[in-house]
C-alpha cells in the first residue's frame, strides 16, 4: 500500500481540473438551489450547451474559440429562458423534472448519429483547443515537488480554472450581500410573501436561472478544455447529481461551499478508488478476490458516494461545516 502516492494522487484530483469543473457547476447550483430554492437538475445540460458550442464552432465551422465561448454563453442564456418560461410559474418539482429531461434531450441530441457531422456523435469533438493551448505560458511540469505535479497543459487549465472559480465566488459574494441577493433568499423561503411585497418573483427566478446557468457554462467550457475533447458521456445525469453532492457537502447558500465541497469530494473519491484498487490488486491482495475483485473495487467509491449523499441530507443538511442553527429553524 503506497500511502504517499495515494495521498498525493488524491490531492492532485482534489485540486485538479475535474474538481474545478464540479466546483463551477456547483457554484451555479448554489445560485439556483442554495440561494433561490430552484431545483435545477439539468446543470449538465447547461454545461453541454456551452461546451459543445465552443467545440463545434471551432471544429465544425472553423471559427475562433473565443467566438465559440461567446456563442456558448449566449446559448446558455437562451436555454435558461427556454426552460424558465414554462416552469418557473409552476411548483418546484416541475422545474426539476423539466430540467433533467432537457439535459437528457441535449445529451442524446449531440450524441446522435443524425447530427454526427456537427457534434461527432458518441465520440464527440476533439482538436478545438489550439487557441487556448497557445496562450499557455508554462512549458514544463509545474506543481509542488513531491506533492502534486501537473503537465504543462494541465497546469494551465488548473490556473485558468481556479481563476474562474475565484472570480465566480467574488461575483456570488457581491450579488448575495446585495438587496438583489436578499430577494433571491426570500424567494427561497416563501415566494408568495415576496410577491405580496411587490417583487416580481418570476423575473428574479429567471435572473437566478440565467446566472446559475452561466456558471454552469463555465463548467462546460472547462470540461471541454480539460481533456481537449468533448463527448456526451461527460454530461450524463449523474454529473448534475455529483454537482449537487459537491454543493451539499460544502454547504448550500455559502459562497465558498462549492469550493470546499469540490476539493473534499474529489479528494475522497480518488482516495477511496485508489485504496480499494490497491487493496484488491496483486497476487495476495488485502481483500480477497472472493469478496471483491478489482473491477468491483472501482464501484466502492460510488456506493460510498450514494450513501454519503443520503447521510449528509439526513444528518447534516447544512453541509459538513455549515451552521446547524440556520437550517434547524425551518423543517424544510
Amino acid at each position: 500500500m503506497d500511502w504517499q502516492d495515494m495521498l498525493s494522487s488524491s490531492l492532485q484530483q482534489g485540486l485538479g481540473p475535474t474538481a474545478i469543473v464540479y466546483c463551477l457547476a456547483a457554484i451555479g447550483l448554489n445560485v439556483h438551489f442554495g440561494y433561490t430554492g430552484l431545483l435545477n437538475f439539468g446543470q449538465a445540460g447547461f454545461m453541454a450547451v456551452a461546451g459543445y458550442s465552443m467545440a463545434s464552432i471551432v471544429t465544425t465551422w472553423g471559427l475562433s474559440l473565443w467566438l465559440g465561448v461567446a456563442v456558448g454563453l449566449l446559448l446558455t442564456v437562451g436555454l435558461a429562458l427556454l426552460l424558465g418560461v414554462p416552469t418557473l410559474r409552476l411548483r418546484a418539482d416541475y422545474l426539476a423534472i423539466v430540467t433533467i429531461a432537457a439535459a437528457e434531450i441535449i445529451r442524446q441530441v449531440v450524441g446522435s448519429v443524425s447530427l454526427l457531422k456537427y457534434f461527432g456523435g458518441l465520440d464527440g469533438l476533439q482538436a478545438f483547443n489550439a487557441q487556448f493551448a497557445a496562450l499557455n505560458p508554462f512549458d514544463k511540469p509545474t506543481g509542488i515537488d513531491g506533492v502534486v505535479m501537473w503537465r504543462p497543459y494541465d497546469f494551465w487549465v488548473v490556473v485558468v480554472g481556479w481563476t474562474l472559480v475565484v472570480i465566480s465566488c467574488l461575483i456570488v459574494f457581491l450579488l448575495m450581500r446585495s438587496p438583489w441577493g436578499r430577494v433571491l433568499k426570500s424567494i427561497r423561503e416563501d415566494e408568495d410573501a415576496v410577491r405580496s411585497l411587490g417583487k416580481n418573483v418570476y423575473s428574479y427566478k429567471m435572473q437566478s436561472l440565467v446566472i446559475g446557468g452561466l456558471f454552469g457554462a463555465l463548467a462546460g467550457f472547462m470540461t471541454a478544455l480539460r481533456n481537449a475533447a468533448i463527448s456526451p458521456a461527460g454530461f450524463a445525469t449523474d454529473v448534475t447529481f455529483f454537482a449537487y453532492a459537491v454543493l451539499l457537502l460544502g454547504g448550500a447558500a455559502r459562497v465558498l461551499g462549492p469550493v470546499v465541497g469540490s476539493i473534499i469530494f474529489w479528494f475522497m473519491l480518488t482516495f477511496l478508488d485508489l485504496f480499494f484498487s490497491q487493496a484488491t490488486r496483486g497476487a495476495d491482495p488485502l481483500i480477497p478476490a472472493s469478496i471483491m475483485t478489482t473491477s468491483q473495487a472501482s464501484l466502492i467509491r460510488l456506493i460510498f458516494l450514494g450513501l454519503a449523499l443520503m447521510l449528509l441530507m439526513i444528518y447534516r443538511p447544512q453541509g459538513i461545516f455549515g451552521d446547524r442553527r440556520e437550517l434547524a429553524i425551518d423543517a424544510r
Partner: peptide
C-alpha cells in the same frame, strides 16, 4: 397571510 409567511432563515 392566514398562515404567517415570515422568511424564516433571514
Amino acid at each position: 397571510f392566514q398562515l404567517t409567511k415570515v422568511l424564516a432563515r433571514l
